[in-house]
């Protein structure tokens, strides 16, 4: 039997994603790729993988995966409810921001994700052929990833390694701080001159809500209408990740990972790259505001975020076996303060 993860339950929309299919946008090929590059990089680092290796992107509800390999090391980035149904029938909860090693016959069950997106990486990655240089799934054209689509029950995801590599499981601190909070930061442009001053003021001062029309391609918002000076049409041109497109109805659309390469609507602003990971986590009904920054400031924010990510990863440390007694937590809670370490056999 070749090493695989068998999909017992697929989750809501679970796809393989990496850094994206770069280099072919001039041919009309969308980039796709992870909505939250921070989560992708952390999940991979916890598994000892290169930062951009393809991992499973989980939306809202995660999958259940049965281990059909001698063993496998996985890591979960993003807050999600998860547990392990072990081959011997025991069940134990599993926390995010750590890797864990499962044995043949164990099942990982990921339930609801607190954010709209989380990542599950596998040490060594998946044994699947890249398409145009990437394993990212672009479902609209049924390309890349696993058969160009979201996972379905019964799928067998082939693993590159027959067993978990040497070295134990690792953990990092909760990464929520990397994502920041407060208004979403934007750089105005490229068509800010196609909006009235009141339209730009409405955009920068109003509260917008995420509608039900939110997927990997775009997030339609609802809020104060943004007025154009001379219509919403332009000659089609390239679209940046995070572009804020405003069609004729004045309601903005955030264009993200699966965005089309070019478009013919005016764009009032672009979300800065450091805040793109937050967009992937927006759920329908969420409220958000925008605040303007300059390009150089946006670049500086991104570099600080990257330094913070590196610091978080540099502080990666061995993790307790999943399901084992978390002695650190017990000490922190003063439950066994001053007593002999139970694990040393002294007894309490």
């Amino acid at each position: 039997m070749s090493a695989a993860l068998k999909v017992a339950a697929p989750g809501l929309f679970t796809t393989l994603q990496d850094r994206g299919r770069l280099g072919f946008q001039s041919l009309g090929m969308p980039v796709a790729g992870a909505l939250d590059m921070l989560g992708l990089q952390i999940a991979n680092a916890l598994c000892g993988n290169p930062p951009d290796m393809a991992a499973l992107e989980l939306r809202y509800l995660g999958p259940s995966l049965l281990v059909e390999a001698e063993s496998v090391r996985l890591a979960l980035a993003g807050n999600a409810q998860a547990d392990i149904l072990a081959a011997d029938g025991s069940v134990y909860p599993l926390s995010s921001w750590r890797s864990f090693t499962l044995k043949q016959g164990d099942t990982l069950r990921v339930g609801n994700t607190d954010a709209a997106v989380a990542y599950l990486a596998v040490a060594g990655g998946f044994d699947l052929p890249p398409f145009m240089g990437s394993l990212s799934t672009y479902t609209r054209a049924a390309l890349g990833g696993f058969k160009g689509r979201a996972l379905q029950a019964g799928d067998l995801l082939p693993l590159a390694l027959p067993q978990a590599p040497a070295g134990g499981d690792r953990q990092v601190d909760d990464a929520a701080g990397l994502y920041g909070d407060g208004p979403i930061r934007v750089v105005l442009g490229p068509q800010q001159d196609r909006f009235t001053p009141d339209g730009i003021a409405a955009f920068l001062s109003g509260e917008y809500r995420v509608t039900q029309e939110a997927d990997r391609m775009g997030i339609r918002l609802e809020g104060p209408a943004i007025a154009h000076t001379n219509g919403a049409d332009i000659a089609s041109e390239g679209i940046a990740n995070g572009a804020v497109q405003v069609p004729g109805n004045g309601q903005p659309i955030l264009l993200i990972a699966d965005r089309q390469t070019t478009g013919g609507y005016t764009k009032i602003a672009t979300v800065i790259s450091a805040d793109l990971p937050r967009l992937g986590g927006l759920k329908p009904g969420a409220a958000l505001r925008f605040i303007q920054v300059g390009v150089a400031e946006a670049e500086a924010i991104r570099r600080r975020q990257q330094a913070d990510l590196q610091a978080l990863l540099a502080d990666m440390r061995p993790a307790k076996p999943a399901g084992g007694l978390d002695l650190d937590a017990l000490y922190r809670e003063n439950l066994i303060s001053g007593m002999v370490d139970a694990a040393q056999g002294g007894g309490a």
Binding site: P190, G238, T270
Partner: peptide
């Protein structure tokens, strides 16, 4: 033209 902090546009004209 500004396209955020991951790109910029060089516009040579606005028509076809």
């Amino acid at each position: 033209r500004d396209f955020g902090d991951t790109g910029f546009g060089v516009a040579f004209g606005d028509g076809v």
